[in-house]
Design a protein around this nucleic acid. Structure first.
Length: 727
DNA sequence: TTTAGGG
DNA sequence: CCCTAAA
């Protein structure tokens, strides 16, 4: 970029025009319509509730009303602040203002990073092996039209042990089943799981892209008494039985296509499968890489083994944590009790422990509401009673929901609520949080129409397993801002039980990048994921434990993850513009976590090289990665705009970013838009790498100036202001 | 291809 | 950043 001297317009004290700029183009309407369509196109949204299997106390759980608690998400859970109220400029650029608003909340939408790790696992013929691997996870896909509600049970697992259930909404499911999944283009990113805690009625903004819905409630009190409350509750837990048993092994991939060829062979007797092309579970990334990351192991064995390793480690980790928790929270609330209880009873059991691990990883996805018990009336009927609600039976139904924004808003969609995850803290100055459920972000599954329900279930389970296995990191958002300071107490942060939490959200950030799938063991080691439970349960101070994780930028999947989350979670540092630097940075910072596994990749690639490509093409609409502008870049941009104005982005690009191939004129234009917004909001509201006020002032000045110029031109085409210092 | 705006 | 209607 070219840095140049600041231009001094020939005027001082330029007043921002109060009048809005020219009317918007008619496009807007079209756009809206389109968006609607897109929503419909949403892929399969899977709602999954993951809970520790051990925690399941189904029997204890009362049944939850099927609910449709309408209240959900009508509004953005994050309140919008009137950012611009004070600024004079506000009136000026209505359009931008609105856009910017979005940006603030962008995290909602974009937060969903790709959790997916491309994983490809083929289910070997022997279902047994697979069972072992996944035994811990149970999943269920519910398709009104397709699936019977009956759960599949793994022989090895007892019904209660199931950890998660995944549900697809009927609308979605249909699509999914039929075939179009791939088409949905717009709906995209799934990556992160975000959760938010809302207060009372607030809902969350619609985010087409957000797939995760985690319902979390912060319970002010009383909740504790309920031992009844099952924590994680079982509700959601449907056990995965392997109905057909050994039946069909479906090759599943994340991030790639799985080939069925093998599949067919394995299940010759199943006529249905014949002719079927593939069963594919795809984890989609924002970035380019999604496909590349196919899970390395095409074979079950590989897959499993890694998993196991990771599990063991995790197990240990969890064990210690649990103990700790149990120990520390004596008084405690349900959660603790449950945990403790569970821990004792279950922990010893390996299988169970495994389950638990998974569940923990999942914990926080989205928090929805924070409410007083007393006040709860509004929202979910069933939520209201803290203690009760979980009915195993209802699960499935409740679970059905569609992640699409449109649907999501629908009251009826509250389905997931049935699943609750609670982390309650002891009452005295304790903040009690209940994460009711979370939604798994976009999992793409492609499967032949002729595939059996069982195979679909398996595919879903695998997808989820993969997602979870990658490891998750928890992020928190309060009032739309990412809480970065882990050392602060909840109180300091403003999270207290009697404090109205406007919007407390948790995000699950995938730890792994494309290479992750393979790195299970390593991932499992990640503290963050392991810690999640604790933090929720009540270790506000565990901050120390959670060390800031460097984000990798400039890289594919990783990038995606970051990207999606980025809105929510700002990266600690801006990535260097140049890829090179980025990479270097990446290595330095994340080397540990990223330890990639070349071998795996190779393996994965070997398995499905061909199919991935097409897939990618179809699915990926968005491939770019997030590349925050550095201050230097901002300065270059400002200078260029000062000279060239706001309507000549191509020139701006050539002038100041000619050498930055990744910065398109559209990017520059967008950046300018955000800069203008940033300049208008209070410093406190700004996120990301701080831009010097001086630059922001210049932005406003230049923007105001050029805005006026534009208006002037419109009225006086003839007149050509000399002030244009251009070229 | 660029612009301009909405998402 | 993405996606696109318009120009």
């Amino acid at each position: 970029m070219v840095a140049q001297n600041r231009i001094n317009y020939g005027f001082n004290g330029y007043q921002v025009p109060k009048k809005p700029r020219a009317a918007r183009s008619p496009r807007k309407r079209d756009t809206l319509q389109r968006s609607v369509e897109n929503d419909r196109m949403c892929a399969i949204d899977l709602l999954a509730t993951v809970a520790a299997g051990t925690l399941l106390q189904e029997k204890q759980n009362p049944i939850i009303p099927s609910d449709g608690s309408p209240k959900k998400d009508q509004h953005g859970f994050v309140k919008e602040e009137d950012e611009d109220a004070n600024t004079p400029f506000k009136a000026e650029l209505p359009n931008e203002a609105s856009c910017d608003k979005r940006l603030q909340h962008g995290f909602v939408k974009e937060a969903c990073a790709d959790a997916n790790k491309p994983l490809k696992a083929e289910l070997s013929d022997d279902g047994s092996s697979e069972k072992k691997c996944f035994s811990t996870l149970s999943s269920q896909v519910y398709d009104p039209n397709f699936c019977s509600k009956e759960n599949l049970h793994h022989p090895e697992i007892d019904g209660q042990s199931c950890i998660a259930s995944i549900v697809t909404s009927s609308s979605c499911s249909e699509r999914f089943v039929t075939d179009n999944m791939v088409d949905r283009k717009s709906h995209s990113e799934m990556k992160n799981i975000t959760s938010k805690v809302e207060l009372g009625s607030s809902g969350y903004p619609d985010c087409n892209d957000c797939n995760l819905d985690v319902h979390v409630s912060i319970v002010k009190d009383e909740v504790q008494n309920s031992e009844k409350v099952p924590i994680g509750t079982s509700v959601g837990m449907c056990c995965f039985e392997d109905p057909v048993d050994e039946k069909p092994q479906v090759p599943v991939n994340l991030g790639g296509n799985a080939k069925l060829s093998g599949y067919e062979d394995s299940t010759p007797h199943n006529s249905l499968f014949k002719g079927c092309d593939n069963v594919t579970v795809v984890g989609r990334d924002d970035d380019e890489n999604f496909s590349g990351c196919s899970h390395p192991s095409s074979k079950t064995k590989t897959f499993r083994s890694k998993t196991c390793i990771g599990d063991q480690r995790i197990r240990k980790r969890l064990a210690s944590k649990y103990r700790k928790v149990a120990r520390e929270s004596k008084h405690d609330t349900l959660s603790n009790n449950v945990v403790d209880r569970n821990f004792n009873t279950v922990y010893s059991n390996r299988k169970n422990s495994y389950k638990r691990q998974l569940s923990q990883m999942n914990i926080p996805f989205k928090k929805r509401k924070i409410f007083d018990c007393s006040s709860t009336s509004n929202s979910n009927g069933y939520i209201r009673n803290d203690n009760t609600y979980y009915s195993t039976k209802n699960d499935m139904n409740q679970g059905v929901s569609c992640s699409s924004a449109r649907i999501r808003k629908d009251p009826g969609m509250s389905s997931l609520e049935g699943y609750h995850r609670s982390a309650l803290r002891s009452r005295d100055s304790h903040v009690k949080l209940r994460i009711k459920s979370f939604r798994v972000p976009e999992l793409f599954i492609e499967i032949p129409e002729t595939a059996t329900v069982a195979s679909l279930k398996i595919a879903v389970m695998e997808a989820v397993t993969t997602l979870l296995r990658g490891g998750l990191r928890v992020g928190m958002i309060l009032n739309g801002k990412k809480l970065r300071d882990d050392s602060k107490t909840l109180l300091q942060t403003g999270i207290s039980h009697d404090n109205a939490l406007d919007a407390l959200g948790f995000t699950l950030e995938p730890n792994s990048s494309q290479s992750l799938p393979l790195t299970c063991a390593k991932d499992s080691l990640h503290v963050p994921s392991a810690d999640m439970p604790l933090s929720l349960i009540g270790q506000p101070s565990s901050p120390a434990v959670v060390r800031p994780i460097q984000r990798i930028q400039g890289f594919c999947d990783t990038e995606h993850q970051v990207t999606s989350l980025s809105n929510i979670v700002e990266s600690e540092h801006d990535s260097a513009p140049s890829p090179i630097s980025t990479i270097g940075e990446k290595r330095l910072t994340d080397s540990k976590e990223l330890v990639t596994i070349p071998e795996m990749d190779t393996e994965g690639l070997a398995v499905l090289p061909v199919e991935q490509k097409p897939k990618r093409t179809e699915m990926s609409q968005r491939r770019r990665i997030r590349r925050p502008f550095s201050v230097a870049e901002v300065e270059a941009l400002v200078e260029a705009v000062e000279r060239l104005g706001t309507g000549r982005w191509r020139d701006v690009k050539l002038r100041a970013f000619d050498d930055a191939k990744h910065r398109t004129y559209v990017d520059l234009k967008d950046k300018w838009k955000t800069l203008v917004h940033t300049a208008r909001i209070s410093p406190q509201q700004r996120r990301g790498e701080p831009v010097p006020q001086e630059l922001l002032d210049r932005v406003l000045t230049a923007h105001a100036y050029w805005s006026q110029q534009q208006q002037t031109k419109q009225h006086q085409l003839k007149h050509h202001p000399e002030t244009c210092l251009l070229l």
